[in-house]
């Protein structure tokens, strides 16, 4: 499918709230009961680089973007998936015997046509080589996993960060979770691509303390090409949030820019973002330098390998940092942010 089409589809559907008609890889799948419950990929504790203090991250499944550099392809689709981690497979064949639909003719080869995603195989696999991405957890389930960490949030000034994927695709669930957390005095942040419907998420935003807002590619044409959708909505949302009154209505805003070689690290892109942010009264930014983990998650999911992106040299990071700083931004690396000065809502 052409990039333009993907972008168009996504633009149509995000915000409309309706189930998309096609099974485009870009738009969230209808199977995940999109309007209601999301699937959760995992809840990860002791995270130090996604907001202040020690935090737990809740990864939602489903994302409206398809960034070329994305290293977490399991977050793309909203429906549950079966991944095969060949390096863990002991070749026992338990999965082949277990599959009730004959979708596994041999180890590591799953026939997507036959597979009904019943997850019998992931349940049976002794080594967790077959892994289920996407668990149908309730708000209570997620809270139960988070609750033991609450005291630590208090001592460290941390909290919970909703992440993904795109949590705002599930405003009902995310709001319920955020409300429940804040009722117990837990600081709630959300990482967002910014591509959400302001109407559907208005209530959610009201219950967040901090919004970690990704800014990637400034030029819309290039954004569509690299991220699979237009960035008009992203910019508009950011503009509106920044313009909104201070106070309880809007969370504090903190943009983060993934620094990807040859994709987001061009001088022009950085300066465009800097000007855009400063004009909105936002003066801080986190740079997230790209690093190839080499954890071949795309391979696990049977997807095409990620494009060859060159390594980011330290001098390039330093260049970007200096450029943004000269433009007037306070630039931080992940985990080094000075959150202390963070006000609810930018000045």
């Amino acid at each position: 499918m052409a990039d333009e089409d993907r972008g168009k589809n996504a633009e149509d559907n995000v915000g409309a709230g309706a189930s998309p008609a096609s099974d485009s890889p870009v738009v969230p799948d209808p199977i995940g009961e999109l309007a209601g419950k999301p699937l959760i990929i995992s809840v990860q504790h002791f995270c130090l680089h996604d907001g202040p203090g020690i935090r737990s991250l809740v990864f939602f499944k489903g994302c409206p973007l398809r960034c070329a550099w994305c290293q977490n392809p399991e977050t793309w689709r909203a429906q549950a998936e079966i991944a095969f981690k060949a390096h863990l497979c002991i070749g026992c064949g338990t999965c082949v015997d277990a599959c009730p639909h004959g979708a596994l003719a041999e180890i590591g080869r799953r026939d997507a046509e036959r597979c009904r995603l019943c997850f019998t195989c992931t349940e049976a696999c002794p080594s967790e080589a077959l892994h289920r991405f996407g668990l149908p957890l309730s708000v209570e389930d997620v809270l139960a996993r988070l609750r033991p960490e609450f005291p630590l949030f208090k001592t460290s000034g941390g909290g919970v960060t909703l992440s993904g994927g795109e949590p705002s695709l599930f405003p009902g669930f995310a709001t319920a979770l955020a409300t429940a957390l804040r009722a117990e005095d837990v600081h709630v942040a959300m990482e967002t691509s910014g591509r959400f419907s302001p109407y559907r998420t208005a209530q959610l935003l009201r219950h967040l303390d901090l919004l970690l807002y990704d800014v990637k590619v400034f030029d819309d044409g290039l954004h569509q090409k690299l991220c699979g959708a237009s960035n008009e909505r992203i910019k508009a949302n950011l503009r509106e949030l920044a313009a909104a009154a201070k106070g309880d209505e809007v969370p504090a805003l903190w943009p983060r820019l993934p620094l990807i070689p040859d994709m987001t690290d061009a001088r022009e892109n950085l300066l465009d973002w800097a000007a855009f942010l400063l004009k909105l009264g936002i003066d801080s930014l986190t740079l997230i330098p790209y690093h190839r983990l080499g954890a071949s998650k795309r391979g696990w999911l049977g997807l095409e390998a990620e494009p060859d992106i060159s390594e980011l040299s330290d001098s390039r990071i330093e260049y970007a940092r200096a450029l943004l700083a000269d433009a007037g931004l306070r630039v931080f690396m992940p985990g080094e942010e000075k959150w202390d000065g963070l006000q609810p809502g930018p000045a």
């Binding site: 990860q44 995270c47 680089h49 290293q71 993934p258 997230i288 330098p289 790209y290 690093h291 983990l293 080499g294 954890a295 071949s296 690396m333 992940p334």
Partner: peptide
């Protein structure tokens, strides 16, 4: 490394 965390053993 940078913004990502992973199990060391999972890396190439």
């Amino acid at each position: 490394v940078a913004g990502y965390c992973a199990y060391f053993n999972d890396l190439q």
